[in-house]
Amino acid sequence: MSAISARRTSSAAAHKARGGAVLPWLALPALLAFAAFALIPLIGVLLLSFTSWDTLGEIKLTGLESWRAVLSDPGLPHALWVTFLITALSWAVQTPASILIGVFLAGRQRYRELLAVLYFIPLLLSSAAIAITFKALLDPNFGLGAGLHIDLLNQDWLGTPSLAMGVVIFIVSWQFIPFHALLYQGGVRQIPRSLYEAAELDGAGRVRMFFNITLPQLKYTAITSSTLMVVGSLTFFDLIFVLTEGGPGDATRALALDMYKRGIQANLMGQACVIGVILVLVGLALALLLRRLGGRNPNASQLEGA
């Protein structure tokens, strides 16, 4: 053990002496690209939230005016609530399904490999294409329900507020469960086989092994997957924009859509940036919370110990 770590530090030290000066330069292009169009806009969104700008005129410093306007708007609690519902419900639907499918796909049977290939197809489609497809499929007059004469399927899916929300959750799950199932598949395959062998010797059944071994061992995968899910669902935009445009009424007007409508459509850039700041803060807070739940971040520790 100590021999390995000693060798590692000595090679790192030798490395620093010799080529260490070159290495930081190699990271520079990526850093500059990221700084210019991600980091500067990140600072910019905060600064712009204290201004008023209608895209044509001057950018005027107006202090807290935009913040006041947004925070006193009754539309904000609603948009927050819609975003929370979408995030929470899509997490609650996707996570158990992804875990089950991931465990299923971790088996080495041939047909499961084929299924994994087919499961991935929704990820190849753009959200715009998916929204267009489901809009036509769910059409009350010419959609699947009407065409097959199944009354249960023949609802005014996108015209009823609660149904529209359900449709959004369903489509998001349809689109992203394959990706998260893949993450869980990778997680399951890393669980030491000896754990299962020991449990089998103790006479544990499949269900008990799932709850006592598989689930606890998937903790870090669950945190990675949940972080991606939550941060991703905060900014669902294309799907809702094409599917419902926030409707019916404003039943599916989530924060990201609200930001677009205020900024690009109503030309209230300051207010749109306030929403942007809220999104960034909520995303960061949720990511940190999930990291806390996991004890320590496996990625960070891994990078430190490289």
Binding site: G20, T227, L234, V277, L279, V280, A300, E304
Partner: peptide, 27 residues
């Protein structure tokens, strides 16, 4: 991990994963 600069760059990119970058489209 021997270079402080690169450790910083690495943390910056990890932070970039946790931030919904689409929220910065207006800037």
């Amino acid at each position: 991990g021997a270079s402080r600069f690169l450790r910083g760059v690495n943390s910056l990119f990890l932070m970039g994963l946790a931030i919904p970058l689409q929220a910065t489209v207006i800037p």
